[in-house]
Design a binder for these strands. Structure first.
Length: 704
DNA sequence: TTAGGGTTAG
């Protein structure tokens, strides 16, 4: 009858706990009233829902009489129940009173505790023979998901699908399930439900797809995000502004900058209903900045400054010029070594955007001053923040200031800032500690470093589970020659990873999660330990972030362990993860080194079939592999296909193809390609000319 | 009833 038996899956909690979930609003009549009043006055679908607020009960439209039932009394009785059996007993007292299904559903929808709502659902099934509606299921599902009871949630939806007759899950069911799964990093489960949803003929909507796209991005699974986007387009849904902006971010992360920029163009061309906004522009600006393409950022910013489109008036700045864009540009000027321009931009923020600089602007400016050696300005700004309304120094401010005192080699002042932040109630984090440790290390204060780290570990401060902090500790020890200490740290790390194998140990959250430990070991170049721990973590399903796979693949590749790199890569694909473009590049390289050309080719093809888009260099890499395989028909076929792709730079493609032939010692073909380039009006750069000349020279020498 | 986008520090 009931596919899930919560009593079996999840042992009953102690009575006090169960009561505690509902009791505060029930036991005290006063606060209980408040809670119900608040809920019942919610204006839902334009109708005021207050009919159950009356202690005497209200007649419902369905013809049942719920008036004999005092809602408060019923809820107090329920609050005293400690398990489903007792709940059933209480409810059966009321079942003779002909509670309407609507009443029951309403009761259920107000129940925030997942155990109790599940029990109510069970009761509706078993005792009253009320058939729970999709709505009822959705409410329970929401509660179960909020409690992160994943298995139970999946079971509930399976039950809906399989009960006879089925209670067909609807858009809300899937949307709730998928977004909760995704939010907690269970992207693959989320995607498998997306499939079931499609099987059930429930169409995904724009928000759902865009949630999944953004989740993929957060898990750094850009290829998957891109594939979802093309799926969205294929199903005829037109992206809106948020979806576009999400994708600009994704394309930027995947380094597909021309794609990112073309999305902005697409919005501009779309005829006005979707126009790029401040978020579109600053996303792209930020992506340029992150990839070190400061000049591109500058040129985009110039476009933004000169475009007045969408302005609200002559005196008003255009809406796409906002504080965030300026924040990014201060950072960009800083990286370009243009501190004076950054300074000018900072002080013009209010005039040009209408907004006052916030803490991020101050923090960025602070760092730019520090990096430019303008320490007087930095200290002045730091002091100014204290006196500026609406700007609160935060952990980033203090960390930046600590690092500035590190640059001036004033470790006592750096330490003083650390104390100052604690005095002001700002908790130092992993960045604060790794900054100060590195400063103390350089000042030779190893005792202080060791003492601090020991303190952090014993206090269970979450900052210790940070890969960079570990790396700082290790390199600090190594720099002063305490190699034994560094090794001990790594050994303990592995042991702590093992400690977490024990389910009980993971509850108290002590030690370092395996994913982190793998990253630390990999960064420290400890291939064997990292590999062993990684295998354990995978087998226990503890690897959720694709970046761990990526870390391992690049670790193996750096150490020339191409077979291992390929092994991890294939495991990653089996697990349903999409590798990012960098990883694909590394994997293709590894396949090439192993001379496994066919496997490389099928990866290249399959990923495109799955909707992936590659940056040019991946295509070029594939050309190179085909050349190395001496599959020249393949080279020509791919070349022809790539020539038809307008997003690929023709000149670069020609150069790469000529290089492929040159390496394969087919100089006639190399010349042919270069000749075709000249004929189609592509100017050949000096390096191309030298390639050409070399190919001519060696072809004449080989023929003589 | 559910739900999506941008910036700073080691």
């Amino acid at each position: 009858m009931f596919a899930i038996q919560p009593t079996i899956l999840f042992p009953k909690p102690p009575v006090t706990h169960l009561c505690g979930c509902v009791a505060p609003s029930i036991h005290s009549p006063r606060s209980g009233k408040d809670v119900w009043t608040r809920h019942n006055n919610n204006n839902i679908n334009g109708r005021r829902r207050h009919q159950f607020n009356d202690a005497s009960g209200v007649t419902t439209t369905s013809g049942y009489w719920d008036r004999n039932v005092d809602m408060d009394e019923l809820l107090s009785s329920l609050a005293g129940t400690s398990n489903e059996a007792e709940l059933h007993a209480v409810m059966s007292l009321y079942s003779g009173r002909q509670l309407s299904q609507r009443f029951m559903t309403s009761l259920l929808s107000r129940e925030p505790d997942w155990r109790r709502s599940l029990a109510l659902l069970d009761w509706m099934h078993a005792v009253a023979s009320y058939r729970p509606s999709v709505f009822a299921y959705n409410v329970v599902l929401r509660n179960v998901l909020r409690a992160r009871q994943w298995m139970l949630a999946a079971g509930l939806v399976d039950e809906m699908r399989s009960s006879s007759p089925p209670v067909a899950p609807d858009r809300f069911t899937y949307s709730t399930l998928i977004s909760h799964l995704g939010k907690s990093g269970r992207l693959d489960e989320a995607l498998s439900w997306l499939q079931k949803m499609e099987q059930d003929g429930v169409s995904g909507d724009l928000v759902l797809y865009s949630t999944l796209i953004d989740l993929s991005r957060k898990l750094r699974d850009y290829s998957k995000a891109i594939s979802l986007f093309s799926r969205l387009r294929r199903s005829g849904i037109r992206p809106d502004l948020v979806a576009y902006n999400s994708m600009i971010h994704v394309f930027g992360k995947a380094r597909l900058f021309s794609e990112a920029r073309s999305l902005i163009q697409e919005m501009l061309d779309s005829g006005g209903d979707v126009r790029p906004d401040a978020v579109s522009y600053s996303t792209l600006l930020g992506m340029y900045a992150e990839d070190g393409r400061y000049v591109d950022a500058l040129s985009l910013f110039n476009d933004m400054m000169s475009s007045t489109s969408g302005g609200r008036g002559n005196d008003q700045p255009p809406p796409h010029l906002d504080l965030t864009a300026f924040n990014i540009m201060i950072d960009v000027y800083g990286h370009l070594g243009m501190a004076r321009e950054a300074d000018r931009l900072f002080w013009s923020i209010q005039r040009r955007t209408g907004a006052r600089p916030g803490v991020v602007a101050y923090n960025t400016m602070l760092r730019v001053y520090g990096e430019a050696g303008l320490f007087g300005e930095a200290i002045h700004l730091f002091r100014l923040m204290e006196r500026t309304d609406g700007v609160q120094r935060n952990v980033v401010t203090y960390n930046t200031m600590i690092s500035i005192y590190g640059k001036t080699l004033e470790h006592e002042k750096a330490t003083a800032v650390l104390r100052e932040m604690q005095r002001h109630g700002v908790r130092p984090d992993a960045v604060s500690y790794s900054t100060i440790i590195s400063i103390w290390g350089k000042a030779g204060k190893i005792d202080r470093v060791a003492k601090l780290f020991q303190k952090l570990r014993t206090s269970g401060d979450p900052a210790v589970a940070d890969p960079v902090l570990y790396r700082t500790m290790i390199s600090t020890y190594e720099r002063v020659g305490l190699v034994g200490h560094a090794k001990r740290l790594l050994r303990e790390l592995v042991e702590e990873g093992r400690l977490l194998d024990d389910a009980a140990a993971s509850d108290d959250n002590s030690g370092v999660p395996k994913e982190t430990a793998v990253a630390i070991l990999a960064e420290a170049g400890r291939v064997e330990e990292a590999t062993a721990l990684f295998r354990r973590a995978v087998s226990m399903g503890e690897v959720k972030d694709v970046s761990v796979f990526r870390t391992m693949i690049s670790l193996h590749s750096r150490h020339g362990r191409h077979a291992n790199a390929v092994e991890v890569f294939e495991k990653m694909r089996e697990a349903g993860y999409f590798p990012d473009t960098n990883t694909i590049g590394v994997a293709l390289n590894a396949y090439g080194k192993m001379r496994a050309f066919d496997r490389a080719e099928s990866v290249y093809r399959e990923m495109q079939d799955e909707g992936c888009m590659f940056p040019d260099r991946i295509h070029f890499q594939m050309l190179g592999l085909l050349g190395a395989k001496r599959d020249f028909e393949g080279v020509e076929a791919l070349l022809e296909r790539l020539e038809g792709d307008p997003s690929i730079d023709r000149k670069e493609l020609g150069m790469v193809a000529a290089g492929v032939y040159e390496r394969a010692n087919r100089l006639d073909d190399a010349s042919r390609i270069l000749r075709q380039m000249c004929q189609s009006g592509i100017t050949i750069t000096p390096s191309a000319e030298s390639t050409w000349a070399r190919s001519q020279a060696s072809s004449s020498s080989s023929s003589s």
